[in-house]
Design a binder for these strands. Structure first.
Lengths: 323, 323
DNA sequence: GCGCGCTATGTTAGCGTCAACACGAGGCGC
DNA sequence: GCGCCTCGTGTTGACGCTAACATAGCGCGC
């Protein structure tokens, strides 16, 4: 910076003003400084700036696992949105223990300006965790809470769409293959399912539960089949994939004997066999809203926001009329 | 830090020595300082340290997209390995343009100590890019190059395993559904395929090419079927999924009429229909080797390493004897 | 008992940046 | 013409940390 200042014949402070786009700089001076910066290949030193200003221009992302395709998609959306806002993104994975507090600890050590928590088991994002680290937070897919921003997909609405579609096809019973009990998204999808059933005057069966993996979907499907299910709403696409295999191996056909709907609209879903009817989540919108909420909070002290991103049903070939 | 020093009755420098595990500290003093640190909830300020030492303890990861399941798995492995070594990980996604230079630029701005480049189109990681940013680099799945560390999966070896398996089942022709031309991994898998064919004295057909997505696999499969393929080695699992669907829609059965092998052993592959025979990549090993190579380079000035991680064939139900 | 070397600790200075304040030059109202 | 404001710019110091050097105390050999 001193070199740039010397070359442009100004003080370091003026260089700083140019870098930070201060209006208090004569256009001609600005041009001179900019020329000097590019001649010298000057790059502001982030650590020094962070030391001075107390801001690192970095946000953290806490995610339990990237094995789930949905999480990966979200990560990408968040990374892109953060970059667009001029923030770096650092990713912290939860260990096997799923220790959210430890993750916050690590982020706080690093001095991020804020963090986004993905889809984490609800009860784990505790006030104590926040206090300890003192981080500004936006949580994705979590119950509304005034202590931090919340951005969610309209899981329940999406689930209702799926169930209504099946009912519209004449199914008189819709089984649900739910996600893990600790997940907010899973609970919401389950709620949408049972509400849609109630509205149609249909009884809800006990749900069968998986852990988001296709293997768990396959394992759970036998229980569903034993109950004579003709329509299954799975809480995500990967579990639906497991169901598809289980149905085929039981000698039944989809959608002739059993209709299946998923959730997420993962890239591969269109090439499942048969192509999967599913509820599409708008991951990109979710990611950019989350980043926007966080950055607005950091930069403008905006109060904790709450936003819901709508879904839509994508009908393919895994659903058909009831026999 | 000053507060900690005061409370422990020592100078700031001694606190620094305790934090940095210097041996030159009396055990009793150390204990006093540690007590003071924990009483006060002291946390070293990374930006200040970075300013002083010139190291940020942060590494960057450059990845084109996370839509591919393999990339996501790698990201997680890298994140965990970096955390274990005490480094933060910041992720940079390539824009639609795939501009590697811009990605390095962003990482250099952030002052990372080094970067890992995932599976990037070979020719894009150019010397010019490196020069500009002056970053220490480890590239995953790229041709050997002394300018940076390289860690790769044994793609060719894995491909040979797959082809040999098919030949062993009596197939007299093995078609290949290759990945994009720009990808090193794709080229290596293709090389393994053609070498295995040559060794068996079998002619290689022209490959059909996809872009790693299941949709491209589905589209490409019709050409393969038109040629009367009985055995297809797809360059990744997702494309294999597309092939599986195409075969079924053509009224043929896997593996009765056509055997299919994938590459990666993605979590879902075991629940494709039928469960997919595939080549397993050890993403965790790959990630931790890449991080180890990079961090050793940063901390110990170790020379650029070159490592190959072996694969193994996982036989499931998508392959069977030739008719 | 003197000097030497070793250990434990302190002191000083500066990493690159920006907030706060200072200052000179010019414009404006009366 | 005087005071006052605005604009463009410079000067100073501090953010929290650690490298380098300085110092004090102690044991040891002779």
């Amino acid at each position: 910076m001193a070199d740039v200042a010397a070359r442009a014949g100004v003080s370091g402070q003026t260089v700083s003003r140019v870098v930070n786009a201060s209006p208090r700089v004569d256009p001609e001076t600005r041009a001179r400084v900019e020329a000097a910066m590019s001649d010298l290949g000057y790059r502001p030193h982030r650590a020094a700036r962070a030391l001075r200003t107390g801001r690192t221009q970095t946000i953290g992302l806490v995610v339990s696992t990237l094995a789930s395709v949905g999480n990966s998609r979200m990560l990408q959306a968040v990374a892109d949105a953060a970059a667009a806002r001029g923030y770096a993104l650092t990713v912290v994975t939860l260990g096997a223990g799923g220790d959210v507090a430890a993750a916050f600890e690590r982020l706080a050590d690093q001095g991020v300006d804020g963090a986004i928590v993905l889809n984490e088991a609800t009860e784990r994002v505790r006030e104590s965790d926040l206090r300890g680290a003192g981080l500004r937070l936006v949580v994705v897919d979590s119950p509304r809470d005034d202590r931090f921003g919340v951005v969610e997909t309209d899981h329940a609405g999406g689930a209702r769409l799926a169930v209504a579609h099946l009912i519209g096809l004449g199914h008189r019973m819709v089984h649900h293959l739910a996600g893990p009990q600790t997940s907010f998204a899973a609970a919401e999808r389950e709620r949408g399912w049972s509400e849609a059933l109630a509205e149609a005057g249909m009884p809800a069966r006990a749900v069968v539960r998986g852990d988001w993996t296709s293997a768990s979907g396959f394992a759970a499907a036998s229980a569903l089949l034993a109950e004579g299910a003709t329509a299954v709403f799975a809480a995500n696409d990967q579990m639906a994939l497991g169901v598809l295999r289980a149905v085929a191996e039981a000698g039944r056909v989809v959608p002739g004997d059993v209709s299946v709907v998923g959730f997420d609209d993962v890239a591969d879903a269109a090439d499942y066999r048969p192509p999967l009817t599913t509820v599409r989540q708008d991951f990109d919108a979710l990611g950019s809203r989350a980043v926007a909420a966080l950055v607005d909070g950091i930069e403008a002290g905006a109060p904790a926001a709450f936003e819901t991103v709508p879904t839509r049903l994508v009908v393919r070939e895994s659903t058909g009329a009831a026999r």
